[in-house]
Amino acid sequence: MLKITNLHASVGEKEILKGISLTVNAGEVHAIMGPNGSGKSTLAQVIAGHPGYEVTSGSIEYDGQDLLELEAEERAQAGVFLAFQYPIEIPGVTNAYFLRAAYNEIRKAHNQPELDPIEFLDVMEEKLTVVEMDASMMQRSVNAGFSGGEKKRNEILQMAVLEPKLAVLDETDSGLDIDALRIVAEGVNKLKRPDNATIVVTHYQRLLNYIVPDHVHVLAGGRIIKSGGKELALELEAKGYDWLLEPVTA
């Protein structure tokens, strides 16, 4: 589904991603872990099409297409979704309007009829229960004045509504208490299907107790320095990252 090959990306003169290769197949959950500043969010934003990062070399193939050729909105319409580490506040646009606009744009892109506000209400009602969110949140401005936990849940709500094929969750767990963490994780698990895939970016093992990854990768200094199965996450939890960062002699 996703094939990243030797990806280099920079901001201005500063190279942040220094040759990343990663393959994600349908039905899989990948976890990307690593210390702060290692480039995890950059990778996530590059996948979503953030215009502030320049891809200097390498490629990303998604569903047989060259992802880097697509605008951010075209990627979303093709099923790519990023749950932001720091969701953006948009005072003045209600969550309800925002979600329906996004939902309809994606339907339009697939030649499906748009839903009017009443029809959309039914969709919403079901999705709100997935993330255990109160309907009153829909009338509030997008993320404006939301608590950290509310923002993260709102990201998962968007994901539930948009039903992406490839979801990238960027530290959706950080700042969440155990209850919120459980809700978010259950939301993700409920949305899991054999034909979609999830990349979970985190630097705690905690979330991976709830969302069990098929593969775990360690990102440091803009490179994937180790990959393994779910046991790797436990090992990282016990030993930290330092042992990986030491120069390895064969």
Binding site: E73, A76, I90, V93, E105
Partner: peptide
């Protein structure tokens, strides 16, 4: 905010219009 809206599938023109309204 423009990128956030676009990352949800909302086209550039609509995203600008929405933010102008906001």
């Amino acid at each position: 905010p423009l990128f956030y809206l676009k990352s949800r599938g909302i086209g550039a023109e609509t995203a600008k219009a929405l933010l102008t309204y906001a």
